[in-house]
Design a binder for these strands. Structure first.
Lengths: 330, 330
DNA sequence: CTGAAAGCGCTAACAC
DNA sequence: GTGTTAGCGCTTTCAG
């Protein structure tokens, strides 16, 4: 067990208060003599004093810790966001507690509760579907949090998302400009609202260019079993529309599995129109002609921390919610 | 702010102690009447009582939290380990605080200090090189931790690693059995000791089969700039040994960038001998003939938590260190 | 069966 | 300039 403030105070025959002032850098402010200050600082260093944040937090009411809740920490997208969040948080003097909800709303709710029990100052959440339960509590109790990647239009919260409609629209447009006529969308039902926006962008592009629109060109893959499910989905599309000539994948892991399917079925990916929202490092090699939208991962991470910490450190009660829609490079 | 134990006690006109006992599930043990218990539990539920872990921990000395420190949380390998660690920890009643050292020993040391200040009960660390500074402190202060993925032979610690020599040996053997004569190794200097073991496995296989051994077949890529550096390294090897016919990559991201190089240079990957320790989902498509060793990610995660928590919850002082070398599937 | 009280390590009014 | 003291919310010993 390390030395405590009290130990130092006793050893040096000063009061705990004095030690506390000095060690928290407010010695000058409190006009503690520099002799005393030096004595305390030297001694603290010598005994390797490490403040007990638990006690500090209990007393101050702040933990200087934020929580990051994502659906899958094993997913490259969220892992990269996590990395950025940690980096930026650190610069601002915060640490981060990551949690992975495994896309399970019940787990997500438990995690949120748990984080609050640990007196985390605020939360960054990439919510799973239908997980509005705890979120509504958070709102009601005015607990600071910001949503990323996904959001609920009916909930008045801070959020940082990408321009889903716009970037889907652009991607599909590129396929159309290549001369593709029958473009399928491969998507998932998770994050329902986000995905519906991506669908909207797709559809708008098709309508504007009088393209073939058909429910047969809509493939919905279940999130959990996507590696298997996508095979069924693509088979179905090829059966129903044999001359399908383009595919728009609404997220990276669908793109990856789509490519796997094409390779396995010996479909020449250079002959087919391909687009994907978000990328993985291998796309460039597997399908050089695939159109890709690169998500502003760092920006999402950076902004979410910035917004959250601003909320934390401002006592302003008007609390206008921040709603950011980031543009996507393509 | 939520209700506290005291609030409940006052509202119900019982003592804090009684409430504490009931709410921590030791009502029966303390023979609290079931009427009182019910009254307390119902009221707690009604006011949505959430215990303050900070206070609990300060008082109990345990946070029920473990720290996981990895070099890069954005790396798929560590991200997957993290996921497994979290899952298992949760089952055992612990939460996890992840930190990414960015392969920076100074950062790593700071992180360890910080986690200790937060009274984390124990640590799982995938250490960066030369980071022995804080580790030695931990050992000296008998602070529980387990190393994963990398370790320092001169430090007596718990660790869980893979059979680096054996699996390198096997991979290279497969190339040799294919008839490859001039096999290069592409590796990195980070995690020096681990990588030296992988080199040893490579070399042993070559020696046993009287293969060509040459410093010209050794390519060392710097971790930070590996995307660029590997190009230089591979160019150098091809210059020095134009008839090189096999490549052993000591880790997944090197394998990935190696493939990128071959594709860019129009080298037919089906004609060349390829092996890689650890995989990414695209290898199967990009280079179906590549020999791959699949790391036991889940096992590493699971075992590290298991070992750590066992150390935490056992008061046994003999403290024999656990040194696990996991086999690798190939 | 239940309660009073001390204490975990630190902060911050309020004295002197 | 420095010390006293009362908490923060919970656990736990010891009394009744």
């Amino acid at each position: 067990m390390g030395k405590s403030l009290k130990d130092i105070a006793e050893a040096l025959k000063v009061s705990k208060t004095t030690v506390s002032w000095v060690l928290s850098g407010r010695g000058d402010e409190q006009k503690i003599s520099s002799a005393t200050q030096k004595k305390i600082i030297d001694y603290a260093k010598q005994v390797k004093y490490r403040p007990n944040y638990l006690a500090k937090s209990l007393s101050s009411g702040k933990t200087k810790t934020i929580g990051l809740v994502v659906p899958f920490i094993g997913d490259t997208f969220y892992a990269q966001v996590a990395m950025e969040v940690e980096l930026v948080a650190e610069q601002l003097g915060y640490t981060v507690t990551f949690c992975s909800s495994e896309s399970n709303p019940v787990r997500e709710n438990n995690i949120i509760q748990m984080l609050r029990s640990k007196n985390i100052d605020g939360l960054i959440i990439a919510p799973t579907n239908y997980a509005k339960g705890e979120l509504e509590n958070l709102i009601q109790e005015k607990y600071p949090f910001v949503l990323i990647d996904r959001f609920f239009p009916e909930l008045n919260t801070n959020y940082i998302i990408i321009d889903n409609i716009g970037c889907s629209y652009n991607l599909v447009n590129k396929l159309i400009n290549e001369g593709r006529k029958k473009i399928a969308i491969i998507t998932t039902a998770s994050a329902l609202f986000t995905m519906s926006l991506r669908y909207e962008g797709y559809k708008t592009a098709l309508i504007e260019h009088d393209c073939f629109i058909s429910p047969h060109l809509y493939g919905e893959v279940s999130r959990n079993e996507y590696e298997l499910d996508i095979i069924r989905v693509l088979d179905t599309i090829f059966d129903a529309v044999p001359d399908v000539d383009g595919f728009y994948f609404t997220t990276h892991y669908l793109g990856m599995e789509g490519l796997r399917y094409f390779y396995k079925r010996n479909i020449d990916v250079s002959k087919i129109g391909l687009a994907c929202l978000h990328s993985t490092p291998s796309f460039e090699l597997l399908a050089p002609n695939m159109h890709i939208a690169y998500l502003p991962i760092k920006e999402i991470g950076r902004e979410s921390v910035r917004v959250l910490i601003e909320k934390l450190e401002t006592t302003d009660n008007e609390d206008e919610k921040v709603k950011l829609v980031l543009p996507v490079c393509d």
